[in-house]
């Protein structure tokens, strides 16, 4: 549908051939913008609606008191659906620790929640199809569980800022939302998300369109194709500090993949961007010492690099 519209706009309205460089780039731009905005709105609405059933206060109650293995799987899965804006990182962390949830399980939640969010899911689905989107979610959850388990084994509680253990958490009495409120919540989230990312998206799609139209075929195969050993670590290390540009850079990745960048490399780049970000580390510093942040980043980075290689091997 969007493809037909883009065809019509480029060929009939602007009178350009899709096979020409400029026409191809323009077609890519129009098609991607429409497709992504549409999918994003639908998905953000649906997921926000589901999410309204899983506020962190509830998630905490479900996880605390469970056996460690069960708690960690639960934390990873709930991380997928639970709403969690980065400005809530600190209260969330304190709330989990205060409820007696082990540090490792808390990290599992902190990793799984941002990796698998609705925005990354939409981008993945629209760019790579459902198979890769499912694999991404699966490996994201797995990474969260394993990284959390390792952090738990290392007994790093001493690196948590001591005041965290002294905070007394009050009884939470957050009221259940009505159906109407859930709809409003979902609608507001769609508007917020689109408002927040549209500029990044357009810039990203613009650059993607340029690559699509002008970068010669197979130029990147040599540097970032399956045969290239260093492409994954380099992509991951570049992706770690980036965050707000996650949405914008995906259309770029789409175009790059069209020019021969291996899928595992592209996916690990995306995972690194969503899982680890500089602003999040600044927030985490409020509740933990730099050593713990360092270990967290190291474990997650290693895991993501490993996932990149696995993806390249199986895809």
């Amino acid at each position: 549908m969007f493809n037909m519209f883009a065809d019509w706009l480029v060929e009939d309205v602007f009178g350009l051939s899709i096979t020409s460089k400029f026409g191809g780039a323009l077609h890519f731009f129009i098609y991607d913008t429409l497709k992504i905005l549409f999918l994003l709105s639908v998905m953000v609405f649906a997921i926000s609606f589901v999410r309204s059933y899983f506020p962190p206060e509830k998630v905490k109650r479900w996880i605390s008191g469970k056996k460690k293995g069960i708690a960690s799987v639960l934390a990873a899965l709930l991380g997928v659906v639970s709403p969690f804006c980065s400005c809530s990182t600190v209260p969330l962390f304190i709330g989990f620790v205060e409820a007696g949830i082990p540090l490792g399980v808390t990290f599992t939640f902190l990793i799984s929640s941002p990796i698998v969010n609705e925005v990354s899911l939409v981008m993945l689905f629209s760019i790579f199809g459902w198979k890769i989107a499912v694999l991404y979610v699966l490996f994201g959850v797995l990474l969260a569980i394993i990284a959390g388990w390792v952090i738990g084994k290392l007994k790093l509680e001493k690196y948590v800022e001591p005041y965290v253990f002294n905070i007394q958490l009050g009884e939470s009495v957050v009221q259940e939302m009505t159906m109407r409120e859930r709809f409003i919540y979902a609608k507001t989230n769609v508007i917020d998300t689109v408002k927040k990312i549209w500029l990044f998206l357009l810039i990203g799609i613009g650059i993607g369109a340029w690559i699509h139209g002008y970068v010669p075929e197979d130029l990147l195969v040599h540097y970032a194709g399956k045969e290239s050993i260093f492409a994954i670590p380099v992509a991951v290390i570049l992706g770690v500090p980036l965050y707000s540009n996650a949405v914008g850079s995906l259309p770029m990745i789409e175009a790059l993949m069209g020019k021969g960048v291996a899928p595992g490399t592209a996916l690990s780049f995306m995972m690194a961007m969503t899982a680890l970000s500089f602003p999040e580390m600044v927030l985490l510093r409020k509740v933990m010492k730099p050593q713990l942040i360092g270990i967290f980043v190291l474990i997650a980075t290693t895991g993501i690099i490993a996932i990149g290689y696995i993806f390249n091997a199986i895809l």
Binding site: E57, S88, P91, G95, E98, I167, G170, S172, V173
Partner: peptide, 24 residues
């Protein structure tokens, strides 16, 4: 903030009762 049992911000408290959390 935590003493109100709130884990997602922003939250709104009216007369010491939490009426909303994690929503603008």
């Amino acid at each position: 903030i935590m003493s109100y049992g709130v884990m997602s911000t922003p939250a709104l408290v009216v007369n010491e009762k939490v009426v909303s959390a994690g929503k603008l």
